Simulated scan of single mutants.
Amino acid sequence: MKVIVDQVKCVGGGQCVIAAEEVFEQRDEDGIVVLLDPTPPPELHDAVREAVMLCPAAAIWVEDRA
Results as ranks from 00 to 15, higher is better:
residue 3 V to G: 07
residue 51 A to Q: 05
residue 5 V to R: 03
residue 40 P to I: 00
residue 44 L to K: 15
residue 29 E to K: 13
residue 7 Q to V: 07
residue 27 R to F: 10
residue 29 E to C: 01
residue 43 E to H: 09
residue 66 A to F: 04
residue 5 V to G: 01
residue 28 D to T: 01
residue 63 E to F: 03
residue 4 I to S: 03
residue 62 V to A: 02
residue 41 P to H: 10
residue 27 R to H: 15
residue 56 P to D: 02
residue 45 H to R: 05
residue 3 V to N: 08
residue 30 D to H: 12
residue 24 F to R: 11
residue 35 L to P: 06
residue 30 D to Q: 05
residue 2 K to S: 05
residue 36 L to F: 06
residue 4 I to N: 14
residue 4 I to R: 15
residue 58 A to F: 03
residue 42 P to M: 07
residue 16 C to P: 02
residue 19 A to V: 01
residue 64 D to P: 09
residue 32 I to D: 06
residue 53 M to V: 12
residue 41 P to T: 02
residue 48 V to K: 09
residue 19 A to T: 01
residue 31 G to W: 11
residue 52 V to C: 07
residue 37 D to R: 00
residue 39 T to K: 14
residue 26 Q to F: 07
residue 45 H to I: 10
residue 61 W to G: 11
residue 45 H to C: 02
residue 30 D to S: 01
residue 5 V to H: 04
residue 23 V to T: 13
residue 54 L to D: 03
residue 48 V to A: 09
residue 14 G to E: 01
residue 57 A to N: 07
residue 18 I to T: 07
residue 5 V to C: 05
residue 44 L to R: 15
residue 55 C to T: 09
residue 50 E to R: 09
residue 42 P to L: 14
residue 56 P to N: 01
residue 64 D to A: 02
residue 31 G to P: 15
residue 5 V to S: 02
residue 35 L to Y: 10
residue 50 E to T: 12
residue 40 P to L: 04
residue 18 I to P: 02
residue 23 V to M: 09
residue 62 V to R: 13
residue 43 E to Y: 13
residue 39 T to M: 10
residue 64 D to K: 11
residue 4 I to D: 08
residue 50 E to A: 09
residue 34 V to F: 11
residue 1 M to P: 05
residue 31 G to Q: 10
residue 51 A to L: 00
residue 42 P to H: 07
residue 17 V to T: 11
residue 34 V to W: 10
residue 59 A to T: 05
residue 33 V to D: 11
residue 51 A to N: 08
residue 24 F to S: 08
residue 22 E to M: 12
residue 6 D to R: 15
residue 19 A to N: 11
residue 28 D to C: 05
residue 36 L to Y: 04
residue 16 C to N: 06
residue 51 A to E: 00
residue 57 A to L: 06
residue 31 G to N: 14
residue 24 F to E: 08
residue 65 R to W: 11
residue 10 C to K: 08
